[in-house]
Amino acid sequence: MQQERALLVPTHGGFPDVTEYRIVSRGYTHDVPGDAAWSTPLRAGRHVTLTSLGAGANASVLLFGPDRLDRLNVPDTLKAQLSACIRPPMVLMSDRGLALASVVASTLDWHDCLTGFVREPLLVTELAKHGLGEHDLHGSVNFFSRVTPAGDERGTLTWSPGHGSEGDSVTLRTELDLLLVLSTSPHPLAPAGYEPAGVRVEVAHAPHVDAEDASVLFRPESARALEMSRRSVA
């Protein structure tokens, strides 16, 4: 694990009477081992890259908006963008119709979001650290995992072994200040005895978003959610 590189910078040019400071983050890298849980606040305008540290990693992610009440809404995210999985350049939307994050890059074209997560005590403990609990659980994105619908009458689902490999990565751009809660437990459909790999988290400043951004251009619904996030901090 690398140390976070942060500087304390006086906000008023270093006058002797300055008492207010802000932290300028230059980003950081943190490795979450397999079968662990972790959470972090994230400022808007960051790139968060998750990288699989071995074959078969799974990163179940929950997202909360700035007030910790608003949260990721997988059904709204899917129906607004007519998808049954998460892939670039989709926008991850909240209950309140805000863009929480955009999926800006991925080496995999499918991240599961239809089959929930293992509700193990470490994950619930991470929520408790932020004053959250069972009431706040919601549909997760299971990065690096794939569960394929057969397209039959029942909509039969099959977990796809070997979907993710070491080095696979996905990058989210935070559109608002978020709380990210992450579990590296095995995907709930993985066979018993499965040894999950760890996941590297890299946080960096995202480049400026312009009108040519792939998520803005993806669908009118994606653009509207991004616009509503802009208005929410206007």
Binding site: L78, K79, S83, A84, D109, W110, T148, P149, A150, G151
Partner: peptide, 9 residues
């Protein structure tokens, strides 16, 4: 709300 094997809904 049909979902299909290509991941569309």
């Amino acid at each position: 709300v049909p979902v299909d094997a290509r991941g569309s809904l």
